[in-house]
Amino acid sequence: MSLVITDLCVDHGAIRAINGVSFSVSTGQLAAVVGSNGAGKTTLLRTLSGLNKATAGNAHWKSTNLLQAKPEKLVRKGLSHVSEGKSVIPELSVAENLDLGALWRRNKKESAQSKEAILSNFPRLGERLGQRADTLSGGERQMLAIGRSLMSKPELLLLDEPSLGLAPLVIEQIFQSIRDLTTSMGLTVLLVEQNAIGALKIADIGIVLNLGKVAIAGPAQTLIADPAVRAAYLGY
C-alpha cells in the first residue's frame, strides 16, 4: 500500500466534513471516491494536498506525511492535485499554464520531455499553446488542468470532479484519458466524482463517501454489480 489514510478527521469550523475516514490505495491503482453533494470529497483531497488542515488521523504517501507539509512542498514529493472546477489560470496562456507546473523542476530537459509527452496525449492543447486559457472549451480546460498537473511529474494524482459541467461525450473522453494515463505513466490516482458510475467503470477500487464517512469500499466492479450499493449510494 502506498497511499494510507487512517482515522482522518477534518473540520470546517463546527462542521466535521471528514469523520474517521480510513482506506488505502496501492501503487498504480486508480481509486474512485464517489458520493453525493457535501459528502466530503473535496475536503478529503484538499487535506491530502495540504490546502486544508486535518483535525486528527494520519495520511501517508509512501514515507511522506501528507498532513504536515504545505502544498508546494508536497508537489516536490510527487503529489499533484487538480482542484475542483477547472484548475487553470484563465489569464495565462495554455503554454504558460503548462510551464507553471514545472517551474520548480531543476532539470529543464526533463520538463521539456514531460511537455512533449503531455502534448502528444492532448494534441488539442498543442494547437492552442499561445491562446489564453479562458478561450478554451470546458473539456479543453480540464485537459489543460490535468496536463499542468502532469508537468510536475507526479506519482500520486488527486483529481477533483474532472467531469464537472462537461457534455457526456467529453466526459467519456476525459475518463478514458485518465485511465490511459494511469496505466501508461504508472500513476496512482485518487479520482473524486459525483458521476459515480462513470468513475467506477474506469477505476480499480471504489470508495463510497457518505456524510464524511466511508460507507462502503471495495473493488470497483463489485460495487457496480452490487444491487444494494447501487440503490443506496449510486442512485439507480
Binding site: 499533484s80 484548475s87 507553471l100 498537473s149 510536475s152
Partner: peptide, 11 residues
C-alpha cells in the same frame, strides 16, 4: 492571479 492554483503547481 491565483495563489491557490500556483501553490498546487509547486510555486
Amino acid at each position: 492571479y491565483s495563489p491557490e492554483i500556483s501553490r498546487l503547481a509547486g510555486v
